[in-house]
Computed example of a mutant assay.
Amino acid sequence: MLPSCWYKLAEYPGIPATSMALPPDQRRLLGAFLRARREALTPAAIGQPPGAYTRRRTPGLRREEVAQVSGLSTTWYTWVEQGRDIALSAAALARLADTLRLNPAERAYLFELTRRGDPAAPVARMPPAAPAELLETLSTLSAPAYFLDRLWRAGGWNEAAGRLFAPWYDSGELCLLRFVFLHRTARRFIHDWEQRARRVAAEFRADTVRNQDDPAMVELIDELRQGSAEFTTFWNDHAVQAREGGARVFNHPDDGRVRYEQVTFIPAAQPDHKMVVLLPR
């Protein structure tokens, strides 16, 4: 038996709390996912002796075992698996992820599905280096191409991008958003700056839904609001747009006005990165 001290009242369903605010289909997906991960675990995963394998009618762990180890009530956890509309805190989800031994991809899926920020997500002040295979991909392209991380900081670019975006790279600012809104050079370099800057703000807002509780994300937005009246105006419009690409025009200091078609890719194994490719037009 697990000690009774595993029980906590913080997540007990009888305590008033807000609901998940998730669509029914999404709640059913969550329940099915948790059940599948629970049934994939053996009692040994939570320290049960070998004898615990016997006399089990269903595979894997029981709901009450997952609830106990996670410090949750069995009723609350049962209702989550049943897809009921109840409260889900990020802390409770983190404990479930630990108990169910979720791998990084599964853990990310859990928090994406529930629209919560992972408390264990690393907060990086400096952009992490893009994985080697992504950087190698850049070197194979003749068109300008670069990578952005989750805070839209350049993590790598090829030679063609270094030439095209010389005003950006020469500014010493890795973050695309800071360059666009806080550097006067951007207003000369980006043709029709106001329209493009408004679009950039709307695209970034679409990105923030996955990292709403990320302190670095909140800090960046606060910095932009304090440093740029235009960003504050555009941000307060609450416009949301996908990063769909399209025509891009720049006033290059050496080449004059140049036109490109932008295409953005999300690497399957690195969803926090974007590869942006500019096709000459």
Rank of each mutant, 00 (worst) to 15 (best):
F189T: 04
I190C: 03
D192V: 01
D192T: 06
W193M: 04
W193F: 08
E194M: 08
Q195I: 03
R196V: 09
R196C: 10
R196N: 14
A197T: 05
R198M: 05
R198K: 09
R198T: 01
R198S: 11
R199K: 11
R199P: 08
A201C: 14
A201I: 00
A202C: 06
E203L: 03
E203P: 05
E203M: 13
E203H: 09
F204C: 04
F204N: 00
R205N: 11
R205V: 06
D207F: 09
D207W: 03
T208H: 04
V209C: 12
V209F: 01
R210F: 12
R210K: 12
N211M: 08
N211P: 00
Q212F: 14
Q212S: 09
D213Q: 09
D213A: 12
D213M: 02
D214G: 04
D214L: 01
D214K: 13
A216H: 06
M217T: 10
M217P: 02
M217Q: 12
V218T: 12
E219G: 13
E219P: 04
I221P: 13
I221R: 13
D222Y: 02
L224G: 01
L224H: 05
L224N: 04
L224Q: 01
R225F: 02
Q226P: 01
Q226E: 14
Q226G: 08
G227I: 07
S228G: 02
A229Q: 12
E230N: 00
T232I: 00
T232G: 00
T232R: 12
T232F: 07
T233Q: 10
F234K: 14
F234E: 11
W235V: 02
N236Q: 15
D237R: 06
D237T: 01
H238Y: 09
A239H: 02
A239E: 08
A239M: 11
V240P: 02
Q241F: 06
R243P: 01
G246F: 05
A247F: 04
R248S: 15
V249F: 09
V249M: 07
F250K: 03
F250S: 02
F250E: 05
F250G: 09
F250C: 03
N251V: 14
N251L: 01
H252W: 13
H252E: 10
D254N: 11
D254A: 07
D255A: 15
D255G: 11
D255Y: 15
D255N: 15
R257M: 03
R257G: 05
V258H: 06
Y260N: 15
Y260V: 00
Y260L: 14
E261R: 15
Q262W: 06
Q262K: 15
